[in-house]
Amino acid sequence: MKQTLTLTINGKSYSDEVEPRLLLIHYLREVAGLTGPHIGCETSICGACTVMLDGMAVKSCTMFAVQAEGRSVLTIEGLAQNGKLDPLQEAFWNEHALQCGFCTPGMIMTARQLLADNPSPSEQEIRHGLEGNLCRCTGYQHIVNAVKAVAKAGGA
C-alpha cells in the first residue's frame, strides 16, 4: 500500500505516493529524477549511493524512502551553486580524483562529512574516512590528494 512521502531534496520540497519498500536511492533516481547518486552494490559496501541526510552521509541503498519523511536530503546535484562548483568538486577535477566517475558522487558526499568532522585530516584520517566508498579506477591516491587540497584551502 502506498503512502505519502514528503521531504526536502537539495532545498526543494517533494511529495509523492510511494510503496514503503521503495529504497531511498530508487526514490531519488527514479521518482525525483536525481541520477547523480548511483547503485554499485546492494550490500551497503560500495558507497556509490551516498547522499547526505540532515547533513550526515548515508548509503541511500540501505534506507527506505519513507525513513526520510520530513527530512532533508542533499545529493551531488545540490552541491554546485549558481553554476559554481563546490570546492570538493573543483578539487576532484584538479587532482584527477576520478576516472570512470561512477563512484565520484558518493565519494564527494562522504568527503564532505569527513571534512566537516575534521577540517585538517591527516592522510591516514582521510583514507580511514573514505572506508565506506569503493573506487575501482583510481587506487584512491588522487582522491586523497583532492581531499587534502580542500582541507589545505580551508575546507569544503
Binding site: L34, I39, I76
Partner: peptide, 21 residues
C-alpha cells in the same frame, strides 16, 4: 591538463545506463 570529461561526472549529470529512461 585536467580532464574535459570531468564537469559532467563531478556534478552528477553524466548519464550512465541505468540513468536512462
Amino acid at each position: 591538463v585536467r580532464r574535459q570529461e570531468d564537469p559532467r561526472l563531478i556534478t552528477g549529470t553524466a548519464l550512465y545506463l541505468d540513468d536512462l529512461k
